[in-house]
Simulated assay, not measured.
Amino acid sequence: MTDSTPRIGIVVTDAYAADDPDHDTPILLAALETRGAPAEAVVWHSTADLAPYDLLVLRSPWDYPDRPDEFQAWLDRAESATRVVNSPALVRWNLDKQYLRDLEFAGIRAVPTQYGRTAADVLAALSAWTDRRVVVKPAVSAGARDTGLFDAADPAALRLAERIIAGGGVAMIQPEVTELSAGGEKALYSIEGRHTHAIAKGALLEAGGGLIGGVYVEHPEPVETTEAERAFAAEVMDAVCATTGQAMPLYARIDIVDSAEFGLVVLEVELIEPALNLHVAPHATDAVVDAILRAAVH
């Protein structure tokens, strides 16, 4: 390392579930070392001095939904100390899934969503989808926490929404997308606005509430995408930039499903800490490392 070598921190947390490890960070650390720019993992909620870093790259602070105020304070501290990617402004916007409203306003198709702040809101939303199944989830969450698939008339759907609201959150109510329940979701990855790869992780939700198998386990597999899907993902990213006034993010995961009922729709845009799944898409590693190195000398 020379004096001109940027000091890069890869932002992680200090513990991961045994069935949900951080595959990306070891791959990125090794690739950056090979490129002559050794980096180090930085636990986001540690007391580490952040000023010596030329760049902090958010990768796997996956426990932030359990400590949101602390994470917001860390973003403030990190932003005042050095450059952070994705930008804290973009991260703050992306923390609450009500950003989907912004994207719809910008012309992006999304799954129809109603937001419940009271039990009355939730009852009205559930009554709009009588005789079918719905997904209930919090507007601020990750890893399918407090997310369930229910018959709209199932009292468990209302109970979950009420628990979310009682905890100070907003409940999202969406109609079931049958193609999604069948595992048809695709996660398209964008590095500096360029498509690099796509992953399918299969269905996660068990009808009646809970997760298939009782635990959150992804089974990522590379999947092909159509020209229409890639074009739609690019439209989503353009809308993100136009809506937030931010530059194209270094990394993004755009979750989509092509449905008979609603067409090609966006489910989520993950700009905070998406698993890049480089262990099953190693060809994307160079693109990510190139982007990090460009950001480090920006």
Rank of each mutant, 00 (worst) to 15 (best):
D102F: 07
D69K: 08
N86P: 14
F105L: 14
V111D: 06
D76V: 15
Q72W: 04
F71H: 08
R117D: 02
W74K: 05
A125H: 06
R101E: 14
A120E: 15
D76P: 14
R101H: 12
A106Q: 11
W74P: 05
W93N: 01
L103A: 09
P88A: 04
A78W: 06
L95D: 01
E104N: 09
V91I: 13
W93F: 07
L75K: 04
A119N: 10
F105V: 15
A124D: 12
I108R: 03
A119G: 13
T113F: 09
F105W: 11
Y115H: 07
A78H: 04
L123Q: 15
P112C: 06
R101F: 12
L123T: 15
A125K: 05
A125S: 15
Q72T: 08
S87E: 05
A78R: 00
T118S: 14
A120F: 10
Q98M: 12
L75C: 08
A110Q: 10
S87A: 06
L75P: 11
N94Q: 10
D121P: 05
R101S: 12
A81K: 07
L90H: 01
V122H: 02
I108G: 07
P112Y: 07
D102H: 15
V111E: 07
G116S: 11
S87V: 00
R92F: 02
F105G: 14
A124V: 04
Q98G: 13
R101N: 13
D102N: 14
N86V: 08
A89S: 13
Q72E: 14
P88F: 00
D102G: 09
A119P: 13
V111N: 07
A73C: 10
L123R: 15
F105Y: 12
T118D: 08
L103Y: 11
D69N: 08
R117F: 00
A73H: 13
S87K: 01
Y115A: 03
P88S: 05
K97L: 10
A124H: 08
L95W: 03
W74D: 03
E79Y: 11
A73F: 11
L90K: 02
F105T: 15
A124P: 01
Q72S: 11
A78K: 03
P112A: 04
A124S: 08
L90W: 00
D121Y: 04
